[in-house]
Design a protein around this nucleic acid. Sequence first.
DNA 1: ATTGGCACTCGCACGGAATGAGTGCCAGGC
DNA 2: GCCTGGCACTCATTCCGTGCGAGTGCCAAT
Lengths: 349, 349
Amino acid sequence: MQNERRLSVLRAIVEDYVKTEEPVGSKALVERHGLGVSPATVRNDMAALEEEGYITAPHTSAGRVPTDKGYRLFVDRLTTVKPMTAAEKRAIAGFLEGAVDLDDVVTRSTRLLSQLTRQVAVVQYPTLSRSTVRHVELVALAPTRLLLVLILSTGRVEQRLLEVTEEVSEETLATLRAKINTAVAGAVIAEAGEALRTIARPADAPADAPQTDTLKDGLAAAVAEALIEAMNDHRSDERISIGGTSNLARFGDSFDTAVRPLLEALEEHVVLLKLMGEATAGGLVTVRIGAEGPYQELSQTSVVATGYGPGDEALATLGVVGPTRMDYPGSMAAVRAVARYLSRILDEA
Amino acid sequence: MQNERRLSVLRAIVEDYVKTEEPVGSKALVERHGLGVSPATVRNDMAALEEEGYITAPHTSAGRVPTDKGYRLFVDRLTTVKPMTAAEKRAIAGFLEGAVDLDDVVTRSTRLLSQLTRQVAVVQYPTLSRSTVRHVELVALAPTRLLLVLILSTGRVEQRLLEVTEEVSEETLATLRAKINTAVAGAVIAEAGEALRTIARPADAPADAPQTDTLKDGLAAAVAEALIEAMNDHRSDERISIGGTSNLARFGDSFDTAVRPLLEALEEHVVLLKLMGEATAGGLVTVRIGAEGPYQELSQTSVVATGYGPGDEALATLGVVGPTRMDYPGSMAAVRAVARYLSRILDEA
DNA sequence: ATTGGCACTCGCACGGAATGAGTGCCAGGC
DNA sequence: GCCTGGCACTCATTCCGTGCGAGTGCCAAT
């Protein structure tokens, strides 16, 4: 791919095709874009581009359509970052401002993103793994039933019910609560586990030791175990919020080959998360085009995603999913902008 | 509608049409169902049914299709409750058994319902309004920043961040926490508000009173206000879980007129909740057919819903949404079964 | 009231022709 | 050597006309 003009032609094809949803021919190209050459010249370029696999013709007498490879080249080399307008920025900030809790923030981000891009938006809840513990609460719901509440720096709250064998007094609970909190408050989740284990057996009492203080120790151990389990519970890592599904209606044709598999993927959160890929923080937006992934059913859909989190640390991913024929520059800009504002909100909280 | 056989004919038409998705003619009818009469007779009945508005012919030489009115008669008078098989019962129980918290229960129910009915399933989270307060937790995240955690009998946890003007000591917090809990624990949400207000101003201190104890009073008032607000926050009543969207793919034709509006409605949770209607507990399943509701865009979709909640008290609704041409008996049975098991789970928790 | 018979209606599937957008290639010009 | 106008060619799509057949409505007979 040497020729400069050919790249322009490819860019023009992509832009036109995205806009019109129809194969674009040489004549229409030179008319709409100000390339200063004749259709015949463009045809030659198009032939070359087709030869190299960047575009393809659905049938002999139709215009050309970008291939996945073509889109790839387009996003990699032909995309100029299209910054958000001031109005858009204000809209984003305003929209996210009003959120009252983490749930709300995520929901609003999802809606925002889907409205900005007119695509399906996906926002993963911040991961537990890298956040820190803010507070642990122990509540006795019934004499032998405890509720553990784990409050994390990201604003996330995990809860666990715990049945214990012996009745627990309020004082025991209070001291245990204090102990646990001084041990784990502020710690990263991964480390918190260790701290908890040391609490659980301060003197390595055997399981069948006398009653006196072992009750408390047994209790501590049970609580510690439950907390550790809650922290390691990656099930909750899979929590995601999805919005803008109705934008799938604009997928135009190919309901069965495109929309249905996508709807199915949207239900399989694990698949979806794999699709969005590893969280790439720091403003880097990842683009997965068509069949580039392992899911061949999704050969007609693309994913534009990025990571977000306080302080440029990627706690989770967020992005949009749509047809390969999508407005990549616009989507990338929107995804990046929302990720940025979302990160800022998490920073403040 | 007097004639007995005519009803059978209508029933047969509905059943066949639901199964084949194609207009059903007189000949096919007598063949598939064991009505002991000739096609001509059936034709007469069909003419009568059409006259009365229960069925209609898409065009002159096609079979007949049930109208909304026809479906209505069908579900009202021609449906025999089809109980779940033992295997299905076991599957339901097993599937819901493994849930770890409320979120999980709701998610599982949604998935379950969508799989049983092969429709889009909608499950509303239990309402706050009629549940009781289990525990209120106050946590100082920072000297002037409090986190309120409100734990309800349904297992739901609401959180609120609260900025206060003055620093709060741990003791103050502890006494306040104790005070609040003795006041509201076990109370229905509606009553809890009153109890809180009395705490907030034990001696009706004026706002500009001396420092000494007013700090605590001001604090108490602020906390009480935040809690009351959290309790009255019906925004959270709108939380719903949606699953099985990919079943929309089986909507067959009419993407634009049927699927798109439905997808849009699914995003508008408020609309969706209105659609599902008032929670009707106690095993009563409501069916809304086609254009019976105020939303004419949804003239091709039906809703089968019911209420659920511990002890036959309807805390929330749950149901399925699908094409008017759906398996009503099956959907109704599934909805009722899931509601029943879900209620039982909430009972135990 | 039910039934067999029969003429009638229309939607739909099939096939051929016309249409026209778009291409590839070639020969001439800058 | 690259660009350009011209031209013959391709082929999906559209349109129309026809035939088919499912299904109906009606009527006369049982």
